[in-house]
Amino acid sequence: MSSRVEILNDGGYRSDGRKQYELRDITIDLTPRGSADGSATITHGLTEVLVEVFGPREAKVRSQTMHDRALINVEVSLLPFSASERRKRSRGDKRVLELAAAIKSTFEPVVQTSIYPRSEIDIFVHVLQQDGGLLQAGINATTLALITAGIPMIDFVCAVTGGVYSTSPLLDLTTLEENDTPNVTVAIMPRTKKVTLVSMETRLHVDRFGDVFKLACEAGAVLHQEMKVAVESRTRKLVGAMETGPSIAIPGAERGDRDVYMEDNMNDDF
């Protein structure tokens, strides 16, 4: 499907006014929702994804549990009004299952599942609006939701899509650009400098792949900064709330006989 819209014009601007390597606006919302243990909403431009995480908890289906690590269960739902054309996708839809499988395989090596044997971690992904970069938004939101749920991970996972228009690479594609250019989604772990996912459904020339891949890795590092700021500000808020709260007197917590207190004796001596 090709459109008559210019993907990249002579002035070096894309159809939505961005430059070649410019990412879309990101907003991150980490407020808790419902009864979930962790939740995050991320928007990349007009793409909006909400992820809720439950667990680690006892598995719903006992037969699926593993004796040495936790099971990661990912369910994706595309809301019927998320695209411009209304389409209701059932749970068994191929596209939905594929997206869920990609998210699952991305996080399996990152989440420290071996700490929670015989348990389950549920990740529910809701796509509220779609405008390109579904997998990218899903992965970024899942990272944040897992972090807010307090589930230990080796590193952040930051994903971004890259595409190539004739010979010039583009980053963070919209639906329009996704339809017209070969594109690849890359998920990186910024601290350990590893890649956990590379997914490409279109054909791309080998000579171009290296450029896009390198660019996407750099963009992932930029996303990492944004995500880190959001996580840190939430943690700071929580710590602040803990300090302002009423101090609770615990009975029996007074000075014990054998307690050793490190006192500041500097001034006594001199």
Binding site: K60, V61, F124, H126
Partner: peptide
């Protein structure tokens, strides 16, 4: 009218 329930709303229910 169509109502969809998110599995996150009813985490204890099977599909």
């Amino acid at each position: 009218c169509t109502v969809t329930c998110s599995p996150a709303a009813y985490p204890q229910l099977s599909s």
